[in-house]
């Protein structure tokens, strides 16, 4: 039977521990839930290592393990905790190869979720790492994508920031790019927004708005199919980047890059510029299909 993302991650980790003698570090891994069911039921003797609740130091422990050529997987259960976990990963592991010719590959499993969890840790925080050199950033949302990025990690010797989203864990389907000739707008979607982008696209087609959709798996270095740059050039209104992080980060950086490459205006839509409250009306969620449609209509109407 086909595996979903959750089962795929779990299997990858089981093999990483069993066959590669690797280690997984993180907080509260073996407690109820096993990180959304993405971990096999294994313990420290098997390489599943519970670190203390000292987040900043925890990042350093993983870096030290990586210096010993062990390719650790470091689980950060909510992406917002990266504000504490990131320092030694970005300042040491990411620089080690360049400064000391000593690779220090860590596989950072950084997990996003949102909805009713307040201002602290929700959503994606991949922009936090993005500005630093020496890190590769991706956001796999399908089983095949996850397998491919793990394989790449094991082949290469860089720090990988893997921006996961709990909303993808049940997904079994691969997500395909959609290329339409002379589109009105080209969408570039990251993380969980990819699922909403597909829904929005299907509605917009019915309104006779022509939309291309490019899924972004590799954020850094950015991988965009060249035919989509061509497609962007022939678009009527330009492009729209969708992200599960605040817009003042990756979204605007990619927008700038695509703008230079295509000469077209590139818009962004991500989290709103505010803190998330707990109550539904006070929350700060990634753009849903309605918001995406509204934004596209606004772009079109302004240009008309």
């Amino acid at each position: 039977m086909e595996k979903n993302v959750r089962e795929t991650i779990k299997e990858i980790i089981r093999r990483h521990l069993k066959l590669k003698q690797g280690k997984v570090f993180g907080q509260c891994l073996t407690a109820v839930g096993w990180v959304g069911g993405t971990l096999p039921e294994m313990y420290e003797k098997d390489g599943m290592v519970e670190v203390s609740m000292a987040d900043v130091a925890g990042g350093g422990f993983a870096v030290g393990a990586a210096l010993m050529n062990s390719r650790p997987i470091y689980v950060i259960r909510y992406q917002g905790f990266n504000w504490y976990n990131a320092p030694m990963i970005v300042n040491y592991a990411c620089k080690s190869k360049e400064i000391w010719k000593k690779p220090c590959p860590v596989f950072v499993r950084s997990i996003a979720m949102e909805g009713g969890i307040g201002p602290v840790a929700g959503s994606s925080h991949h922009s936090l790492y993005y500005r630093m050199p020496g890190v590769k950033i991706c956001s796999p949302m399908t089983p095949k994508e996850y397998k491919s990025i793990y394989k790449k990690f094991m082949r290469e010797d860089d720090v990988f920031y893997v921006s996961e989203h709990r909303g993808s864990y049940n997904n079994k389907k691969e997500l395909k790019n959609v290329l339409v000739k002379k589109p009105d707008i080209v969408l570039f979607a990251i993380s969980i927004t990819r699922f909403e982008a597909i829904k929005a696209l299907n509605i917009l087609i019915k309104q006779n708005i022509k939309i291309s959709l490019h899924h972004i798996l590799w954020i850094k270095p950015l991988k965009i199919e060249s035919k989509f740059i061509k497609n962007l050039k022939e678009s009527k209104y330009g492009g729209l980047i969708l992200d599960d992080d605040y817009e003042n980060g990756i979204a605007k950086s990619i927008a700038n890059e695509l703008n230079i490459k295509s000469g077209k205006p590139i818009y962004t839509l991500g989290l709103k510029e505010k803190s998330a409250g707990f109550y539904p009306t006070k929350d700060n969620l990634p753009p849903n299909k309605n918001e995406i449609i509204k934004k596209i209509n606004k772009i079109i109407n302004e240009k008309k």
């Binding site: 280690k23 870096v63 210096l67 010993m68």
Partner: peptide
């Protein structure tokens, strides 16, 4: 310190 502890733990 944490990096050394991680390296020592691993090795």
């Amino acid at each position: 310190a944490p990096i050394a502890v991680g390296a020592c733990f691993q090795s």
